[in-house]
Structures are given as C-alpha cells and as structure tokens.
Design a protein around this nucleic acid. Structure first.
Lengths: 341, 341
DNA sequence: TATCATTATGTAAGCGCTTGCATTCTTATA
DNA sequence: TATAAGAATGCAAGCGCTTACATAATGATA
C-alpha cells in the first residue's frame, strides 16, 4: 500500500479528472470552485493522503505565510514566554513561525537571518538592535520587514516593540539608592552582543550619576546565565574593597545564584545585603527570600510584536514602534542598609 | 542600489559567464569545479549578495538536510536542554533543525508532523509514542525515519532513544516505600496525550503492588506544569482521608509547587511530609529544602537521538533503540516518616 | 603528435506548485 | 430562444534550483 513517493497535485488531478489549476484553487480559495467539483476534489485529496509540497508552493507563489524569529537561545524561560505569545498571535492569523537561535553570537545570528530569508520568511522578529549594518542592508535590499523586540531604544532607524531596559534598570537602581545605599555592586549578564544587558548596566549608571556617585562606589561583574556563575561573581564583588550593601542583578537567575551564594556565606538577605533581580520569572516570588525585581510584559510584548509585524507586512509603514512599560515588584530581597553597614 | 528582488543563480551566471550548472556545482561540491572558475564565481556571489533559494533547492534536490522535531511545548526547560544537544549534534553534521510545538494536543501534533514533512524534513524527532496509527502510517508511506525520545518502552515497533519513565518512577517509589511510608500521594503532570506522565504513574503503582499496597493507600492528583496548580493538588491530597506521609511528584516544578504550599501550611519537609521530584532541573538543588529527585540524561539523550536519526537517514536499520539510565539524587526532601505520623 | 582517460563545463529536463489569460459553461435577462 | 455577463475550468508559462547526459578542454602517455 505504501507508495514511497508523496502524491502530487497531478495525482489528484488524474484521479478527479480536473486540471491541477482547479485543484490548486480549490485548496487555496475554495469559493472559486463549484461545490460539486470541490467535494470530489477534497475526497480524492483525502483518499490519496495528499499534502501540498510546501517548497513547491513557496517557489511558485513567492510567499510563504511564514515569519522567522532569531533568538539568542531557546533554553531561557524569558524568551520562551514572549515567543509563545508571538507564535499564538501569528497562528491566529494563519501564519507559521520559524525559530532559529544564535547562541548570542553575532556571526551565527547573521547566518540565521539569511537562512530564514532564504527559506522565504516574509518577515522577521529580531531580538535587540545590535548587529552589523551589513545585515540591515541585506534585509532592506530584500525588502523584508522586521520588528526588534526585547528592548526599546529611542531612535527611529528601526521598529521597536519592547520595553526600555535602560530606563527600567535606572528606576530600580534609583529605588535602591533612595533607600540609602551608598556602595553598589552589580552582577550583569554577559555584555557581548547583548544590548539588553548593556542597557541595564547603563541604566544603573544613569541613576548613580544622578546621585553624584563615582566609580569607586560601584563594581560590576559579568556572569553567564546560571546560578553558579552568579555565585562566583558575588564572591568577586565581596572580595573587592568596595563593600557594597546592595547588589543589583541583571536578571532573576543571577539574583537567585547570588542569593544562594550569600546564604551559603552566612549572609542574611536583606539585612546583611540587599539583592535585586530583573525579569520576574515564576520562581522569584516563591524563592526564599522572595525577590524584589522588575516585571516585564513578555506576553504583551510577544503579542504586540506579532501584531506590528502583521501590519508591516500589509502596509509599509515603518513608524510603528511601541514602548511597553515595566514595573518594580517589591518583595523581600531589598531593604534599606541595616546591621550598621 | 537596492534591488528589490533576490539575485538568482542566473544572475550569477550572467555575471561570470558560466552556466548555472557550474555555479550550482561550485556551491555544493567545490572540488568539482576548477579553481579558476571557482574563485570567479565566489567573487560574483559575494558581490551580488547571492543566497541560494532554499525552496527551489529543496524542490529540485528532493532533500533538504533538515530534520524536524515536534515537542509538546517550547516553554519547558526539560525539552529545551535535550533539544539544545539534539540541535548541536545535527548542526555539526550540516543539518538544520526545524522545531514545532503541539501544546500537548494530539490533533495539533499530527498537523505539525505533516507540516514538517510537507516542508521537506528528511527525518523527525518525536516525543513519546502516543499518537494515532494514522500518523505512523503516514510517516511510513512517506518513508520518513523518526526517533521517539523522552521515553523508552519495551516494544519493537519504533526506534526509541530515551529513558524508561516507568522504571525510573518505580525506583524512586520503591525507595520511598523502603523508608517505611505506608500512605502515598502523587502529584502527576496532566496525563492526557502524555505517555511520560502516564508511565511515571504506572511506575509508582508497580512499586506499590510490589509492597502489596492497595487503592486506599494511594491518591493521585493531576496538575498542570506550574507552581500554583501543584499547590492546589497538594491541598486536595491533604484534604482526602488517605493522609499520605510522602508525596511523589511527576516532575520538579510540581515538587517545588507542592513544597511551597506545604511550607505555607506550616508543614516541615521532610519531617512532616516527604516530597520527591523528577527531572532534576537546575533550581532543585538550591531550593529550600533541596529536592530529592530523579536525574535524567537530557543532554546525552538529545545527542544520542540525533546520532541515531543520522544513522537512520543513511542506512535503514530500524533496530537502533537505545535505553538510557536515570539515577536518583538524594537531597533533603525525602526521609523516613517522622513526627509520629 | 596522436590517443585516450580525466576533468570541467554546458544543455535542458524536470521538481510540484501558482496564476494570468483563454476558453467553456451557466444562468439570468430581454 | 438568443444573448451577454459571470462563474468555472483549463492551458501553459514560469518560480530558482539540481542533475543526467552530452560535449569540450586538458593532460598524460606512447
């Protein structure tokens, strides 16, 4: 029974006695075909187990109803959530999402972008705006609309749908400083090829400048996205001669790692040291202590990014940037400096 | 400068004065073309910014060097890890991974499988073996090799590369029973369309049978993959008249949710109640209390699944099933029953 | 230098679909 | 019943590539 080769439009045509053109129409815009033939065609399609060949379709039609997304990594809850909403919104509109990951590497990202375009992606979702001009030129020459998400920057070159990392970091840092902390430590995510992480550091620096703080009041350590690395970063910070009373972390995973390490060192949080996070992942609210962090509208962002992209695919309006708001969630890990420190 | 249409092989041909066939060869098997022309061609390719059209390529070559994977959900660290390894192994072999998600829905999964095949996936990675025969028939008629992962079942119909969920659950349940627990609660993941969750429940039942325990010694509640739901499941279990002294959870997220709820109820773990997990996600070791759980070889599984698939794409040996081992990680959340209960 | 095996390139026929244009049916209208 | 408008269908030309097969160029050998 098994026919080792997929049935084609032609096979369906032969079996129904109509032309391939009619079948194509029947499948793509059913109302352009008479009911009688439609029924007959659909029957044959089912019997043969016919599935349209996507590649042939894309080649002939010059569009794919496919949108591509290049994200830094799949194994990060942060992207998963936003992407989920992005995907759902696309699906509702009959569009398929193709996801590729860049491992935070510039070169790999450029390659993936080209690969997605080669596969016929009609539009793209990109994370952050930090990439070679060459890549942007390529996108422009191919007339591929794209939305930049997970960050918002105040310039008009691109369409952003995201939140302002710099501003959000500035706000939480300001809160820390308002509580009276004079020496600040920061554990940042890896900065290379990551404008979100970079902007979060900048935001903290903005707040420090506002409080007239100087370099020797601040120490910043990079750590990769896992608990252990954050712990080591905390060690380094504590060993320095800055002696910060508060540690601002670039994300919640780093905050959890830092808190865990601090607890292991016998430090009480927030009495001995305050630690803040960023992202508000699910675990942050039930961790001990619960983490004061920045809540980010992932779902909204994903949905809005999709909607914006959809709009760009139809009109070619490029002034659709959208800045989303973040908010600070106060839980237990931040307080005024205590214990005489 | 921007040409709104992508350059084609023909454009490169025109510019270099050789035929499209030579260019195709130059790009796909460089050594079949003389050095002189190769250099000239690559130059033109670069100047024009030529990128091969993937769809045309797939159509003409009847293969895509693409492997598809249909996973239940993207937003689950468990799949992310294995998939990462799977992807890396494929990439090393020049193969691209296409991921689709089914949201744990049978119908959606069947659709995604067809879509992936329609896109030309040369082979497939599937999670668990629970799907309609129709889908398997389809795969067979199209001669698409596939590997079933994240579970291992002892029958020969399919190629499995995974661990035996039933056996692993049996082993941890046995350990719980050996400690002297007489009444057992279980918080399982949602069972519908999830053979892994199902087998974990079966494994626990296997152990209970071995200890001659009866229905009234056991209560099982389903909960979806989040902390709150697990907490509610725990409430239900505690309100029942079984009064278990140990709760076996179908995965670590449920265990964390249950522990959090238990702590909120003023229960001490493991003194008042023991709670075990499954999967050994990163947070489990640093949570309070650290969670006794089952360690699963995600990375190895992903890599082996890829290697197996690669082999199936070359030979058509179908007896490549591979059972991977799990191990129990003893941390603080499980002890013998105490406090007089 | 003639001969033959290699190597390099060209020719052209598809791959399975969509779609503009042409043709044939229907059906309503006069 | 003749006629025109509109609906349904068919024809056939691609879409951008790969790949038999054919041909031309290059060397090695005698």
């Amino acid at each position: 029974m098994a026919q080792n080769t997929a049935p084609t439009l032609e096979d369906v045509a032969l079996r129904t006695g109509v032309s391939t053109a009619t079948i194509s129409r029947c499948l793509n815009s059913p109302d352009r075909v008479s009911e009688k033939t439609r029924v007959r065609i659909l029957e044959a399609v089912k019997e043969l187990g016919y599935t349209p060949n996507f590649n042939a379709k894309a080649l002939a039609a010059k569009r794919t109803n496919t949108v591509g997304a290049v994200i830094p990594t799949m194994s990060n809850a942060i992207f998963a959530l936003g992407l989920q909403a992005f995907q759902e919104t696309l699906t509702e509109n009959g569009i398929t999402l193709l996801v590729a990951s860049s491992s935070f590497e510039r070169e790999a990202e450029a390659t993936q972008i080209r690969a997605l375009v080669a596969k016929g992606a009609d539009a793209l979702l990109l994370i952050g705006d930090e990439r070679d001009q060459e890549t942007y030129d390529f996108l422009q020459s191919r007339e591929i609309p794209y939305v930049i998400s997970w960050n918002y920057r105040a310039h008009k070159n691109h369409t952003f749908v995201g939140f302002n990392n710099r501003k959000a970091a500035y706000l939480i840092a300001k809160q820390v400083l308002n509580l009276g902390h004079k020496k600040i430590g920061m554990i940042s995510g890896v900065l290379s090829n990551n404008d979100r992480a970079f902007d979060r550091v900048q935001g903290v620096k903005d707040a420090m400048a506002e409080f007239s703080m100087i370099d020797s009041d601040f120490i910043c350590q990079e750590a990769s996205y896992n608990f252990d690395d954050a712990g080591h970063a905390l060690d380094t910070i504590l060993e320095s001669n800055i002696k910060p009373t508060a540690i601002i972390c670039g994300n919640d995973v780093l905050a959890i790692g830092a808190i865990t390490r601090a607890k292991a060192l016998g430090l009480n949080i927030p009495d001995d040291i305050s630690i803040t996070g960023f992202d508000d992942i699910e675990i942050s609210s039930i961790f001990t202590p619960p983490i004061t962090t920045v809540s980010v509208p992932h779902t909204t962002m994903g949905r809005k990014a999709a909607e914006t992209l959809l709009e760009m695919m139809h009109s070619d309006d490029r002034n659709l940037s959208l800045e989303l708001e973040t908010s600070i969630i106060n839980r237990g890990s931040l307080s005024a400096p205590r214990n005489g420190r």
